[in-house]
Design a protein around this nucleic acid. Structure first.
Length: 706
DNA sequence: CGGTTGCACTTTTTT
DNA sequence: AGTGCAACCG
């Protein structure tokens, strides 16, 4: 009976994907083929009908959000509470799972259980310090490129020694030195970067057979989603965790591999059958998401690629509207076209805001779209972009917490030592750190004992000692297992942090509100370890809400999602495909095509692709051609005149009001003020708030008043 | 020491 | 155009 429940709503291929419970299984799941559903049912079937203990199942997803969703669906499928952690399988991203394992087993390879996780900006900061320490003056060594070089090395499991041995030329030699120095400093700070989380697990499982066997026999069934986007380290982890029963099921689609730039290698999925002889292969080709028109256009785009598997997605759904291609004059018109379309349909209640997604290649493109949506008062959310936890004020608080948690974390200490300002400048900081290194104290103890050094001014000493006692107070709270939110509240209080950021400006107000959000979010956690881990591993899509708002995000962030109406903007040569791949090879161009395919297949009913003739880039206007990918889209070309025929507020010259000096004006953004200068379209206004702004009247939407 | 100003650089994509 | 960083001045 339960079997019926679990298999009832599935098509024959999906059913066999669920029933094939032993041995290696490869599921090639096309876009929209019900992959998540199949995976969830598979897990449910293992638990309910095969009697597998949930905690013996390991399910790896690409984002935390995907894990959460799966947990939810699984819960309702088997009639259990999704938040019942005791019942649930091990679910999470590779990074999340690795952190969990490291907290348990890290001691075996010398990883203390209070390690902190460095994100990309922490990593680049440390690389800068390493470069400085090594006194490498070469300007060609940008922290960013060094960072990705080190990442590539790590993801291919190349350690510093090995890298140095094979380094060729002055550039690589320099990188090798920095890599080594970076590692030394990172270990000393008690930190792991994203890549370390993976490769330390590889090391653990390789070097410690007993531990490996323990986890191999623990995980009786392993499932990996988005297998086409695994890198070398993740591949190793899978191989090391699979036991002799080889109950390994991977799901993926080489057509949707879009992360090769961060080490993902879709040959992992192509080679799966070779890696696990006797693999059963199941193809899911029936699409339940998109109309025939969208599916066909997407198929036409992707099949131009040479390196790919063969498959044919089909649907028995409607043919639907043809894909619409809009040519527009520039990025502003592009944004207005999108906003206007959404405005018309939501105003007439044809659709909800949440029916729409606007997808773009680069984050920088979101700016114009945002402004257009704001102007028409359309509610929206940006997924990714400047992440919440990347904001200065949030990073400050997190840095405090990390230092409390890991008193060797020099990066975090350097960040907060003079935040809020307490009279400790670069000179004092350097002197303090030099002394601290030789003193044998960790940073917090060194702060408390700072009077023992003679090199620092009395003023700075007092400030440092005070900071030390504050950190000590917070450490005591951690030892008493106080809740993270409580600790943050105390921290804000004793540092006066909120007064520090409230400088009377609206931005200061916004920062303070962000601190408020941080606090309410922290209330969901019961331990500082969990909280810091969540903060570090939160991905950009994880922050998406399901409120009734328009969603803006990059094509990458859209992977795995679907929307009734999708707008792809900037479908131009130089953007999609991105200009960077022109100098790269055909493989990179194929990845751009896959990216285009991923974007197109997000759409359920309507797909709009827009390209502008001109666009502002780097503050300069540049001209671009329609993307080559559009050549393969069987589409209706929407003429320009049609897209701009209904025009509630298209800026046009006869609509732009004339201004004279001394006119009283009002702006939505800046309030009321007085015109002090007029120069063609540029009008300078002294606002009543005190600030003077030079505004372009075509866009600033100034209203004459009085 | 700390704030301000000016300059250079930016744009792929993110766990 | 916006941001981050380096040099400069108070």
């Amino acid at each position: 009976m339960v079997v019926m429940d679990i298999l009832g709503e599935l098509n024959p291929e999906q059913v066999s994907a669920v029933r094939e419970t032993s041995g290696p299984l490869l599921i090639l799941a096309g876009a929209g083929s019900g992959k998540t559903k199949t995976l969830t049912h598979r897990v449910a079937n293992l638990i309910v009908n095969q009697g597998v203990d949930p905690s013996d199942i390991l399910a790896v997803t690409f984002t935390n959000k995907a894990a959460r969703e799966m947990r939810q669906r699984l819960g309702s499928l088997v009639g259990r509470n999704a938040s019942d952690r005791m019942f649930m399988p091990w679910m999470g991203t590779f990074h999340g799972i690795c952190v969990r394992l490291l907290r348990i087993e890290g001691a075996a390879i010398g990883v203390a259980d209070n390690f902190v996780i460095y994100d990309d900006s922490d990593k680049q900061g440390l690389i800068k310090q390493a470069i400085k320490h090594l006194q490498i003056g070469d300007k060609a060594l940008k922290p960013k490129s060094v960072s990705s070089a080190i990442s590539n090395a790590k993801n291919s499991l190349v350690l510093p020694g090995e890298y140095a041995a094979t380094a060729y030329g002055p550039y690589q030699t320099a990188i090798a030195k920095i890599y080594q120095q970076y590692e030394a400093m990172r270990v000393k700070a008690g930190a792991l970067d994203f890549d370390d989380l993976l490769i330390e697990i590889v090391r653990l499982l390789k070097e410690h057979p007993t531990i490996r066997h323990k986890w191999q026999s623990k995980f009786k069934h392993i499932l990996v989603d988005e297998y086409q986007d695994t890198n070398a380290a993740q591949y190793q982890i899978v191989k090391l965790l699979v036991n002799e029963d080889r109950n390994i099921c991977v799901v993926g689609d080489d057509w949707q591999s879009i992360y090769s730039w961060r080490g993902a290698d879709f040959t992992n999925i192509l080679n799966f059958e070779r890696d696990f002889p006797g693999t059963k292969v199941i193809k899911l080709e029936q699409n339940y998401r998109s109309t025939k028109a969208i599916l066909e256009a997407a198929q036409n785009v992707i099949t131009k690629n040479v390196k790919r598997t063969d498959k044919k997605l089909w649907t028995d759904g409607d043919s639907g509207l043809p894909v619409q291609v809009h040519q527009v004059y520039d990025e502003a018109e592009e944004a207005h076209t999108v906003a206007r379309h959404i405005f018309m349909e939501t105003e007439t209640k044809v659709r909800d805001f949440s029916d729409y997604a606007v997808l773009y290649r680069t984050n920088a493109q979101s700016y114009t779209l945002e402004r257009a949506l704001l102007q028409m008062r359309l509610p929206y959310q940006i997924v990714g972009g400047v992440r919440f936890y990347d904001r200065k004020e949030i990073k400050d608080i997190i840095a405090y917490l990390r230092l409390v948690y890991q008193p060797s974390d020099r990066m975090s200490f350097s960040r907060i030592v003079n935040t809020p300002t307490r009279g400790v400048g670069a000179t004092s900081l350097e002197k303090f750190l030099i002394w601290q290194m030789t003193s044998g104290f960790d940073i917090v103890s060194a702060l408390i004992n700072v009077e023992q050094t003679s090199t620092i001014t009395k003023r700075a000493k007092t400030a440092l000692a005070e900071l030390g006692s504050k950190i000590r107070i917070l450490q005591a709270m951690v030892e008493e297992n106080k809740m993270p939110a409580e600790i943050i509240e105390k921290l804000l209080k004793i540092t006066n942090y909120r007064d520090f950021i409230q400088d009377g400006t609206p931005q200061g107000e916004e920062r303070d509100e962000n601190i408020g959000s941080l606090l309410s979010d922290a209330k969901n956690f019961v331990s500082l370890t969990d909280y810091l881990e969540e903060v570090a591993l939160m991905s950009s899509v994880d922050t998406a809400s399901d409120d009734n708002v328009v969603t803006l995000m990059t094509l990458h962030a859209a992977k795995g999602l679907e929307f009734p109406v999708v707008f792809m903007v900037g479908v131009e040569e130089g953007i999609l495909p991105h200009a960077r791949v022109y100098e790269a090879g055909p493989d990179e161009l194929e990845e751009e095509r896959r990216l285009c395919y991923v974007g197109m297949t997000r759409a359920r009913q309507e797909l709009h692709m827009l390209h502008a003739s001109s666009r502002l880039q780097f503050g300069q206007r540049s001209y671009s051609l329609p993307s080559r990918f559009l050549d393969d889209v069987a589409a209706d070309i929407v003429p320009r005149s049609e897209t701009s025929s209904y025009s509630p507020d298209e800026p046009s010259y006869d609509m732009v009001p004339e201004f004279d000096i001394n006119d009283r004006v009002e702006s939505l953004q800046f309030g009321t003020g007085q015109v002090v200068d007029v120069d063609g379209m540029a009008v300078s206004v002294k606002f009543d708030s005190g600030t003077t702004k030079k505004l372009n009247v075509e866009y600033a939407r100034l209203q004459k008043i009085g």
